[in-house]
């Protein structure tokens, strides 16, 4: 029998996490499908479960002086309907594209990050937002930049006793975000490739800061520093002309059932151009 814990405080949750080998569950939209997939081929086992959804306060988006704190129980739908500046437009666009409405209503952004799928739609957006991961354990609290949190294909730096409590996004004046996703059908589709970006501009609409990331084209979604450098100083309305194939050298797409590697690389370039065109519109 699978033990199921549903504590009502973070402290209790961390205590369980510290002493037992449990799988954290939030919206369950990754946990259940993975379980069903294993069960279908003869492995019905599952770890004991730590359900964090009864912990109060984690489902809020809080705005402070320095920026925003997105609680680990904030769902895609909640984010989409929250009043947030254009900086979050990319993440909001992803919130509309993840699965269907049912999944958006239950799935959390932090859960998407913790699954760390190369095709997770949240991840390139969080990279572009330069989000920081707020992590708690009975030992205390630590914050990790996203780059350090994501450690590999479906792997994170989260220790077995830790829980992600929130994502922190700092205030970025005059910045706006965007996201484009490519799939083989309209809804409920795992991305073949996707691109997310945040750009800030000056009074002359020149790009002062750019962070751009591509997903599903490497084991972990990646930012493209060369492209970001090239964008800095460019006129926003010409930004779509900037991306070139060489900017994508950091990517290492693979062939799978959804697409070929060569296609992914080329599509990523198109998506980046589309993304920047969208940001300048």
């Amino acid at each position: 029998m699978i033990a199921y814990h549903r504590p009502r405080s973070l402290q209790d949750a961390l205590a369980i996490r510290a002493t037992q080998d449990v799988a954290v569950i939030a919206g369950g939209t990754d946990v259940y499908p993975a379980h069903a997939g294993r069960r279908a081929w003869g492995d019905p086992t599952h770890k004991d479960v730590l359900d964090i959804t009864a912990i109060p306060g984690l489902d809020r988006i809080e705005e402070g002086v320095g920026g925003w704190r997105i609680g680990c129980l904030v769902t895609w739908s909640a984010l989409r309907h929250a009043s947030l500046p254009p900086l979050f437009d990319g993440l909001k666009a992803a919130a509309r594209e993840v699965g269907g409405t049912q999944v958006q209503n239950r799935g959390t952004i932090v859960g998407n990050l913790c699954t760390a799928s190369p095709a997770g739609d949240g991840i390139p957006n969080l990279l572009a937002l330069d989000a920081v991961v707020d992590v708690a354990s009975a030992r205390g609290r630590r914050v990790l930049p996203l780059g350090a949190f994501l450690s590999g294909y479906r792997a994170t730096a989260l220790a077995p006793d830790e829980i992600v409590t929130a994502l922190l996004v700092s205030r970025q004046p005059r910045a706006r975000g965007g996201f484009v996703k490519l799939g083989a059908r309209r809804y409920l589709v795992i991305s073949i490739a996707m691109a997310a970006g945040v750009v800030a501009t000056d009074d002359a609409d020149r790009i002062t800061e750019a962070r751009v990331a591509v997903g599903a084209c490497s084991a972990v979604a990646r930012r493209l520093p060369d492209l970001e450098d090239a964008l800095r100083g460019a006129a926003l309305r010409e930004a779509a002309e900037v991306p070139e194939a060489a900017h994508l050298d950091a990517l290492s797409p693979i062939d799978d059932v959804r697409a070929s590697a060569a296609y992914r690389r080329d599509a990523a370039l198109t998506l980046l151009r589309d993304l920047l065109r969208g940001l300048s519109a």
Partner: peptide
């Protein structure tokens, strides 16, 4: 049982959800 088909869609506190992805504990 994987959120892919939506046949199990119910309203949970008035919002549509795939019942196959919701732990029964969470409807308390």
């Amino acid at each position: 049982e994987a959120g892919d088909c939506g046949a199990c869609t119910v309203l949970l506190d008035g919002a549509q959800a795939c019942a196959c992805l919701v732990p029964t504990a969470q409807v308390e």
